[in-house]
Amino acid sequence: MSYLAKSPWLIHYDGSSCNGCDIEVLACLTPMYDVERFGIINTGNPKHADILAITGSVNEQNIPIIKNIYDQMLEPKVVIAIGICATSGGIFRECYNVQGGVDQVIPVDVYIPGCAARPESIIDGVVKGLGVLEEKYKKYGKKR
């Protein structure tokens, strides 16, 4: 972990999640899990962020917002779907207002299962996302 070459900043958007995964994402930032050790910061500004973490499924209302945040982020970017609702819709898959997972709207790079996803699982997923980010850098022919 100590060889992370980049300090990825993360923006978190709550789709229609139940707060469970949300709170676990926040818990990752607090002293017990403390992802700031690795330089990961939760930012509120899409233009500062490398990683978009989405919890919860998508519905009619938040499709334009998720697209908006995604478009504002600079390339290369990684999308992480946290929790079962974000990956497949979960228990709410059959609800009338739920479209399904986040991959219905924007391309998703890492899926983190779990209901609610554990902080350990989220940290693992973000590390996996960093690998994807590295590859995208190479694809863009950028030096870091």
Binding site: D14, G15, S16, S17, G56, S57, N59, Q61, N62, I65, I91, F92, E94, C95, Y96, N97, V98
Partner: peptide
Amino acid sequence: IGYVHRGLEKL
């Protein structure tokens, strides 16, 4: 409001 509406009562 309505960004988190899932409609789970109909489940």
